[in-house]
């Protein structure tokens, strides 16, 4: 386990003075991804249009201490792939001595939706890069519109909960699985750091692996958005914890095609533990909507069971049962 005192001595690569909302999870994620960079290594960071982008480099103030580029919404992966290609060419010509690492950040809008083609292309081409999706489950930058990452039932400005339609009517796209299907060296699903849990360093560890495993790698990070989730900022990490403990957002990694669960809750909490903390799901918990909660629970269970199979946890469980029967 990494040592916090030692980590704190590494200079931060993102400064204060950015214009993200108070309590935003995105800079937390950026801090912990970039903390995984070795001190001597330089980085080029690309950012898809979104909250993080507009708030971290609002001319003339940049919060980035590494080289950083934003060009558009849907193309952070393509943009960083070009920078990586140029680096390879310049390195081949002997024009560059230093080591550079290439990281792209995008929200779920820029990654799951409008940027999916560019992401898929860059990943398939195998550039030496990491794409980090800070997934907060809606287009927060434009005012909380639904994305394909938005959870079923969530009340957003384009999937509003009304008298007839109770919020978003589709379950979220499973982007981590889509990226795993690209057969990349390293794909992982993780969360913003939650102190006091076993997965406090999950993001850091997975970032380190992603950055220092050669090839195109992908991280999907559940990131709190107090405004979009309608929660008190101070409680946001409790909400993240609930996402993990209910198995709504399991922590796992896929290394060279091999699935591995990186955290298994001792007791899987009911989905209401995640729903009840957030204003965007408030309507689901009203009397008469029990069937919706059941529907969500069933889908969470189905996806969790499938993941357990992929991670070989089912065989492990069977073996454990068999061993105890002997």
């Amino acid at each position: 386990m990494p040592n916090l005192k030692e980590l704190s001595k590494k200079p931060a690569r993102l400064t204060g003075g950015h214009r993200m909302c108070a309590g935003c999870g995105a800079p937390m994620v950026v801090n912990w991804v970039t903390k995984a960079l070795k001190e001597g290594d330089k980085a080029v960071i690309a950012n898809a249009t979104g909250c993080l982008e507009v708030s971290s480099f609002l001319y003339p103030y940049t919060a980035w201490k590494d080289s950083w580029i934003h060009s558009a919404f849907e193309n952070a992966a393509a943009t960083i792939s070009g920078a990586e290609a140029a680096y390879n060419a310049m390195k081949r010509k002997g024009r560059i001595d230093e080591t550079y690492k290439f990281i792209a950040f995008g929200g779920d809008g820029g990654t799951y939706d409008i940027g999916l083609q560019s992401l898929s292309g860059a990943m398939e081409r195998g550039h030496d890069m990491v794409y980090v999706c800070y997934d907060n489950g809606a287009y927060m930058n434009t005012g909380i519109q639904r994305s394909s990452a938005t959870p079923f039932g969530a009340d957003t400005t384009t999937s509003p909960a009304g008298k007839v339609v109770p919020g978003k009517q589709q379950f979220r796209k499973d982007l981590t699985q889509i990226m795993a299907a690209h057969n990349l060296p390293y794909v992982a699903q993780t969360v913003a750091p939650v102190p006091g849990t076993k997965y406090m360093f999950d993001l850091y560890n997975k970032s380190e692996k992603a950055i220092y495993t050669k090839g195109a790698n992908f991280l999907n990070v559940l990131t709190p958005c107090p405004r979009g989730w309608r929660i008190e900022a101070a409680t946001e990490l409790d909400v993240i914890k609930a996402a993990v403990e209910t198995c709504w957002w399991p922590l796992y990694e896929v290394e060279n095609g091999k699935y591995k669960l990186t955290y298994k809750p001792a007791e899987k909490k009911p989905i209401t533990e995640w729903l009840k903390l957030q204003g965007r799901f408030k309507h689901l918990l009203k009397p008469g909507n029990e069937h919706l909660v059941e529907k969500i629970q069933a889908e969470v269970d189905r996806r969790w069971e499938r993941l357990l199979e992929l991670c070989g946890e089912k065989e492990i469980a069977k073996a454990e049962v068999a061993a105890s029967n002997k």
Binding site: A12, L14, G16, A22, G23, A26, P27, P193
Partner: peptide, 29 residues
């Protein structure tokens, strides 16, 4: 320091030394 979104917990030599009120937005995380 782990969770501060605004890098406003000042740490020196592994120990907290104060809060950067120039940048702290008071989120309470």
């Amino acid at each position: 320091w782990v969770v501060c979104p605004d890098n406003s917990i000042k740490v020196e030599d592994g120990k907290m030394t104060g809060i950067d009120y120039d940048h702290c937005k008071g989120c309470g995380v």
